[in-house]
Amino acid sequence: MAQRLVLVHAHPDDETLTCGTTIAHHVARGDEVHVVTCTLGEEGEVIPPDLEELEGHPDDLLAAHRRGELAAALDALGATGHLLGHDGLGSRRYRDSGMVGSAAAARPDAFVNADLAEAGAALAALLREVRPDVVITYDPQGGYSHPDHIQAHRLTRAALDQLADTELPTHTYEILTPRTWADEDRAWTRGASPAAYGLVVPGADDPHPPSVVDDERVTHVVEDPATRAAKLAALRAHETQVIVATDDLHALSNRIARRTTDREGFGRVDPRTWEPWPD
């Protein structure tokens, strides 16, 4: 029987970077996948020189461009997109809050300043309409502690809190990476000659982000090499944010090399408490 999934992400490109394999895998199975994006990534750094005028433009020209990138990426993955504050998903639009300490976070329309009861009601309305079997978002630290990722986690919980027990999804997951994978991927990347593409890798002893956890905390894994073409097409769609160096190697504007894999991990949690789901 086909399932329905809703994934909640902070900015365009997050859906592909963290869940591209999962989205494409479920679409290929015949499942219905919805991706909610909370902002248009107005504070993003622009990589291609011919588009650099979009970065920091006072009229937020980057927002419209990234909306187009998101649409192309979702088309490649086969998912249905929803933008918070657009297309009937709530009336209040939220802007990218930037990294920790950014002046963008002080703006009243910054996503970090969203009224979670109001924004949660918009997301809850979508959940009631779609009635997903599965809801996926970040862990409480937002994967790598970006303020908007943390707020997307809070938004998801606020929406779930507004649902009756009979309206809750059957399964709720946070996005996690097993430490074994993270170590393997970092070692692989160091051996993939990233400098040949103008990229660098973190040191072997550099800390992993908070979403990298002990292997036993990862309760579910999606691993599907058949999704590679769709994921790569989606990564390339996000041209302002992602460098696709090879089919196995990509980077963001910081030029830190990342391995492009066909595997993604998740931890099942209680939708009310966000504690790990009992075995």
Rank of each mutant, 00 (worst) to 15 (best):
D214M: 00
P210A: 13
R258C: 10
E223A: 14
A230I: 00
D215Y: 06
L252V: 06
P225A: 12
E216V: 03
P210K: 08
A229R: 05
P209C: 03
D248N: 14
H238A: 08
S211V: 01
V213H: 03
T260E: 14
V213G: 09
P209D: 14
A251G: 03
T246F: 11
E216L: 00
T246Y: 07
T260L: 15
A237T: 11
T261K: 14
D214F: 00
N254G: 06
L235Q: 06
L232D: 04
N254Q: 07
K231R: 13
Q241R: 12
E239Y: 02
I256E: 13
D248L: 15
A230V: 00
K231V: 05
A251W: 03
P210Y: 11
I256Y: 05
A233V: 01
D224N: 08
A234F: 02
A230C: 02
H220M: 02
V212F: 02
L249T: 08
R258K: 14
A233W: 01
R236K: 15
V242A: 09
V244M: 14
L235H: 02
R255L: 11
T219S: 15
R258G: 03
V242H: 11
L232I: 13
V212D: 07
T261V: 15
P209G: 06
K231T: 01
D214C: 00
S253R: 08
L232Y: 00
D214S: 10
I243G: 05
A229H: 06
V213R: 13
D224W: 01
